[in-house]
C-alpha cells in the first residue's frame, strides 16, 4: 500500500514540484496519473521508491516510511520503469541486463537464471537473450527495460510514459500486457499524456496540475469532466467529445469506450426506427 500524508517537495533550485499531496493507493490497483508537462507527475513517482524524499510530510510504502529506507530497499517493492530505456541499458546482452537488478538484490544464482528466463519469456524476448540491447529497435528496448524491472517481481509497477514512441500495434500489446499484470494482483501505476490509451485501459485516474492533485476518480468520472481536464491541459477522448456534442439527443454523458459508444448509437437508431413505425 502507498500512502502520502501531506507531502510537499521543493527542488534545491526552489521550484516547488509537489504541494500538499494526500493520497492512498491500496493493493491491487490500477492507476493512471495525467496532467500537463511539469505538473509534478514524474516528481511524484520518484517519491515512490525514495529517489526523492519529501521536504514536508511522510510517505509510507507498505507501512515503511520512505525517509527511513534506502532506494534499493524500496525498489524491491516498487519497480519504476523510466520513460527512456536508453537511460538504463548498459550490458552486453539482454540476459545480463535483466540479471543486473536481481544481482543487486542479492538473489542466488539459480533463482537469477530462473527469473531471467521467466522475464524473457513474459515479454517475448527469448530470441534476444544473447543479443546486445543496443542492437534492438526502440520498441524492443522499451520491452527490455520493462523486463529488467519485472524480473524481481515488484508488488507495485510504475511506468513513466510507457506509450511514448510506440506505434499503434505496440501500444495495443502494451495495453494487453498491463491488463494481464493487474489481473494477476499487481498494482500498476502509469504516468501518461495519452488520453486515448487511458480510455482504452480504464484505470483509476489521478489528475495533477501545478504540483497538486486536483482530482481522483474512475476513468469514466474523470475523463468526462471537461473542466478538470482543461485545467490539466488534457484533451478529452474523442468518444467523450462526441457524446458531449450529442447531449441533446438524450445520450448518456459518461462514455469513454468505443464499443459502448457503438452500442448506444445502434440502440438509439433502433429506438428511432421503432418510434417511426409506431
Amino acid at each position: 500500500m502507498i500512502e502520502f500524508k501531506n507531502v510537499s517537495f521543493t527542488y534545491p533550485s526552489g521550484a516547488e514540484a509537489l504541494k500538499e499531496i494526500n493520497v492512498k493507493i491500496k493493493d491491487p490497483d490500477f492507476i493512471a496519473i495525467i496532467g500537463e508537462n511539469g505538473a509534478g507527475k514524474t516528481t511524484f513517482i520518484k517519491h515512490l521508491n525514495g529517489i526523492l524524499k519529501p521536504t514536508r510530510g511522510e510517505i509510507y510504502i507498505n507501512g515503511l516510511n520512505t525517509k527511513k529506507a534506502s532506494v534499493a530497499e524500496l525498489s524491491r517493492d516498487v519497480g519504476i520503469v523510466f520513460q527512456n530505456p536508453d537511460h538504463q541499458l548498459f550490458c552486453e546482452t539482454v540476459e545480463e541486463e535483466i540479471a543486473f537488478g536481481l544481482k543487486n538484490f542479492g538473489f542466488n544464482k539459480d533463482i537469477i537464471s530462473e527469473r531471467v528466463t521467466w522475464a524473457l519469456n513474459l515479454l517475448d524476448l527469448t530470441k534476444y537473450r544473447k543479443v546486445s540491447p543496443f542492437m534492438l529497435s526502440g520498441g524492443e528496448r522499451k520491452r527490455v527495460a520493462l523486463a529488467t524491472i519485472l524480473a524481481w517481481d515488484p508488488k507495485i509497477l510504475v511506468l513513466d510514459e510507457p506509450t511514448i514512441g510506440q506505434d499503434f500495434n505496440q501500444k495495443d500489446k502494451l495495453r494487453q500486457f498491463i491488463i494481464q499484470l493487474t489481473s494477476q494482483g499487481r498494482t500498476v501505476i502509469m504516468v501518461t499524456h495519452d488520453v486515448e490509451f487511458v480510455a482504452d485501459c480504464n484505470p483509476k485516474i489521478i489528475v495533477m496540475s501545478h504540483s497538486r492533485i486536483i482530482t481522483t476518480g474512475s476513468a469514466r468520472e474523470v475523463l468526462t469532466n471537461f473542466d478538470i481536464l482543461s485545467k490539466a491541459s488534457v484533451i478529452p477522448p474523442q468518444i467523450t467529445q462526441l457524446f458531449s456534442q450529442l447531449s441533446d439527443l438524450d445520450l448518456p454523458q459518461n462514455i469513454i469506450d468505443l464499443y459502448e459508444a457503438k452500442q448506444l448509437i445502434i440502440d438509439l437508431t433502433k429506438r428511432r426506427l421503432d418510434n417511426e413505425s409506431l
Binding site: N49, A72, R76, H87, Q88, F100, I149, W152
Partner: peptide, 16 residues
C-alpha cells in the same frame, strides 16, 4: 540532468 536521470534509473534497479 541526463546523468541524474540515469542515476535515478539505475538506483531504481537496486544499484547502490
Amino acid at each position: 540532468i541526463e546523468a541524474q536521470t540515469i542515476m535515478d534509473a539505475q538506483r531504481s534497479r537496486g544499484l547502490e
